[in-house]
Nucleic acid binder design. Structure first.
Lengths: 172, 172
DNA sequence: CGATCTGCTTGCATGTTGCAATCAGTTGCA
DNA sequence: TGCAACTGATTGCAACATGCAAGCAGATCG
């Protein structure tokens, strides 16, 4: 690990953590895609990350304290990656990044529906989502009332609804 | 300009814009430092950007629509860089990045006071600041009542106060 | 026992970065 | 007029990062 810093500016230090083309993408897939294994991250990546880059970034993110790694009891060679609180608190930043991208960049409809819902839900939704992640990744007790649809499932359902609607829109 | 995108995901597209180690640093210096010229950005950079990288990033940010360039009437070879609305709307993201960095990373006190104030001020302060930037960079009319201290000046004053206090703290 | 899956590494070609030096044109001053 | 300082860049070069394809050893399944 390189422990030298260019400056003590918070924006700079944040950029030193995820100011590259892959780190946030990996965290995004873990946070919103629910991926926990190396292969899931590798094969599920729509951006097509290379395996050596993925391995390098996972290692880096662990060293930086954003991820932890544990054995998967179902398979002795499988590893489960978990978010730390440090990574979970990136949810608002992800939401803002998504909102900004939706306004200014050529986003695709199906991939931006999640960002749209996250933006509309605002901080209350982000908090709910972060609590879910804490439960999932840190084993924290669930705070949401039982039976409530999880935020990730809501986002996923909305995504699938857009995908399902797409061919109809083309046909009609 | 590379117009190929890895995916239409808003987070990914945002990362393609400023997912590198310098673009946001440059925008930060323009937004919070009020720097408008090449030399100001080059010599004022605490992170020590190289001139070729600066030239490259300024060009890139212009092509991406985050900056515009105009002649400085006082000097035929001087250029003035201005933020576009696209760049001004990054203020909330900067604020969140700063807030996150302040919590999790080894920030220095004097360089994080701005982030602290920005966080405490919340969206209302960000909006005021963005209006100031619109006035400064886009020639928009000022919305704040006359006589109000500008947000940038407030942040700058707070920074200088911390710097001035520092030697005392060491001595006493 | 062999096919497949696991996380991860290696080799290699290419692209990006950072540093120092340098560029030509502009300006201010003597 | 002469000349140093300053303007926004550009160049050469070494180091580093990236992406792709192939390969690794151990675990699991049938």
């Amino acid at each position: 690990m390189n422990t030298e810093h260019r400056s003590g500016c918070p924006i700079n230090l944040s950029l030193e953590v995820f100011g590259d083309r892959w780190s946030l993408i990996i965290l995004r897939d873990i946070i919103f895609g629910g991926r926990r294994h190396f292969r899931e991250l590798l094969n599920g990546s729509i951006e097509g990350i290379a395996s050596n880059i993925l391995a390098d970034r996972l290692k880096r993110l662990m060293e930086l304290g954003l991820l932890t790694k544990a054995d998967d009891p179902s398979h002795k060679q499988k590893a489960i990656y978990s978010l730390t609180e440090m990574a979970i608190t990136l949810v608002p930043i992800m939401a803002h990044l998504g909102a900004w991208g939706r306004v200014w960049l050529p986003v695709s409809e199906e991939l931006s529906i999640r960002a749209e819902l996250l933006e509309k839900g605002g901080p209350p939704l982000w908090d709910r989502f972060m609590d879910e992640l804490r439960h999932e990744h840190l084993g924290a007790p669930v705070k949401t009332p039982p039976g409530t649809a999880t935020v990730r499932r809501q986002l996923q359902a909305a995504y699938e609804a857009v995908v399902a609607r797409k061919p109809q829109a083309t046909a009609g």
